[in-house]
Design a protein around this nucleic acid. Structure first.
Length: 120
DNA sequence: ACGATGACCATAT
DNA sequence: TATATGGCCATCG
């Protein structure tokens, strides 16, 4: 293990790739699932390096407040728009209900929010 | 080696 | 509910 640990980056990306459409995960959650609890900022750092030219659903990663954290980078509207296209609902303040849309891998049966088709 | 920075998080006011 | 503050951990100049 003398290497820095490219595993963390790979694990984060692998997790992002597994997020189903219409669901979201938080940075802290990604870090925890990747084996580095508390390293939420690093999870964001990893995503920052892959934006623009990735097949991964990077837009499904938001912060613990239920808001997109890319507004200052310029594509906040894009991210929120993509999520809305997938069925996620945001309120006027650009916030969504994590208890409702947050996704957890089957391995770690945690939250299991409501189904992707709540009403309608 | 050190200080500054960041797609963050939790708590307090 | 919104802003302020401290803590976190890896990267970079």
């Amino acid at each position: 293990m003398t290497d820095p640990e490219p595993a963390f980056r790979d694990r984060v990306l692998a997790l992002v790739a597994r997020i189903p459409a219409g669901r979201v995960v938080t940075y802290g959650q990604l870090a925890t699932l990747a084996g580095q609890p508390g390293a939420a900022r690093q999870a964001g750092f990893v995503l920052n390096s892959l934006v623009g030219g990735s097949e991964l659903p990077w837009q499904r990663v938001i912060n613990a407040q239920g808001r997109v954290s890319t507004h200052k980078l310029g594509f906040g509207d894009l991210q929120e728009g993509l999520l809305r296209t997938e069925g996620i609902e945001f309120d006027a303040s650009g916030r969504c209900d994590l208890a409702r849309w947050q996704w957890w891998p089957e391995d770690s049966a945690q939250g299991q929010a409501a189904p992707p088709t709540p009403l309608l």
